[in-house]
């Protein structure tokens, strides 16, 4: 695999001493779907803006195919951005929006340009809507125009700034799977910015978790979910029960009246509530030490009543161990 994008100790701080990005180093492989995941204000959008060239780093460097982008304006970088609100040009038709980059960045001949636009329209299933204006399109269609507008340029890296957050929740899951298959088809490296851990887990080849301007962990979805290196990563990727310093995910937490037999770890607890979620139950319990523990159990395991004393247990291999 070839490295396509490399961030070297990338940092950005502002005049008011606010540090948005702090020493982020990262290498993206050709054709990879990489997500930067983190809460709002963690520096993920600033990182994207530094790569796109909308802002200059205070320290560090961005390399695209081994060449430093330092000092290059956005129009001279072979990356393209899909904005959170899509930023479609409202006074231009779908066709004109998609053609914009080909006219200015690629400067290709008319015949070639028309073919590329037609291909791009087909790729995002918007053939026949090329004369519409953005205001005449649905949210999902607008998002596809934004994708086509960038992909038609065949950038080395496509930067996506929370492109699903403006869609309504019903549409989001459908567009998510479309996005993944689109990326597989075009083979372009995607750098996807999101604060939604489910989105990141389901889409990505690798995930970088950011917190307070720093990259806390980089790994496959399984790695960051099952073997988080910091407590922040563990908590941000999903609920964790912290029991005597080790973490256990609710789905790895079991409940029974009798203590388990073998090498499992077990603690007694009292049931506080039971939440029926259709496909499973969330049993909230409290340990003697006062810590809350949630177990996600199958409804086939039966239900537990409030105030009942039970044993909470788990397999040692399901433990999350990370420094405080």
């Amino acid at each position: 695999m070839d490295a396509v994008l490399e961030l070297r100790k990338l940092s950005k701080s502002y005049a008011n001493h606010h540090v948005a990005v702090s020493g982020v180093s990262l290498t993206l492989q050709q054709g990879e779907f990489f997500s930067l995941l983190g809460p709002s204000g963690c520096g993920k959008t600033t990182t994207l803006r530094l790569i796109a060239g909308f802002e200059e780093p205070t320290d560090g460097d961005v390399l695209l195919k081994g060449v430093s982008l330092r000092g290059l304006p956005p129009y001279a970088r072979n990356v393209s951005t899909v904005f959170q609100n899509y930023a479609l040009f409202p006074h231009m038709t779908v066709r004109e929006n998609i053609e914009f980059g080909l006219r200015h960045k690629a400067q290709m001949r008319t015949a070639e340009r028309e073919k590329r636009v037609a291909d791009a329209l087909g790729m995002v299933r918007l053939t026949g809507k090329e004369s519409r204006f953005p205001a005449q399109l649905s949210g999902g269609e607008r998002q596809r125009v934004a994708l086509a507008r960038s992909l038609v340029l065949e950038p080395d890296v496509l930067l996506l700034d929370e492109p699903l957050s403006a869609l309504d929740p019903n549409l989001r899951k459908q567009v998510r799977s479309e996005l993944k298959s689109l990326q597989r088809r075009v083979g372009i490296t995607f750098l996807f910015i999101t604060h939604d851990q489910e989105e990141a887990l389901s889409l990505s080849d690798r995930i970088g978790v950011m917190n307070q301007g720093r990259l806390e962990q980089v790994g496959t979805p399984q790695e960051v979910y099952l073997r988080p290196r910091t407590r922040f990563v563990a908590d941000f990727l999903g609920t964790v029960n912290w029991i005597n310093g080790v973490g256990v995910r609710p789905e790895a937490t079991r409940i029974s009246y009798q203590p388990p037999g073998g090498g499992e770890r077990a603690v007694p607890a009292v049931v506080e509530s039971s939440l029926f979620l259709g496909n499973c139950l969330h049993i909230r319990t409290r340990l003697i030490t006062g810590e809350p523990v949630v177990a996600e159990v199958s409804r086939l395991n039966g239900s537990y009543g409030r105030g009942e004393t039970v044993h909470v247990w788990w397999h040692p291999q399901d433990e999350i161990i990370c420094p405080q």
Partner: peptide, 21 residues
């Protein structure tokens, strides 16, 4: 929307072209 000009720059327009177009 200020991101419109950024989108234009991103798609290859210089500052002047972004302003004009």
């Amino acid at each position: 929307d200020p991101s419109l000009e950024e989108a234009a720059l991103d798609l290859g327009a210089t500052e002047w072209v972004a302003f004009r177009k």
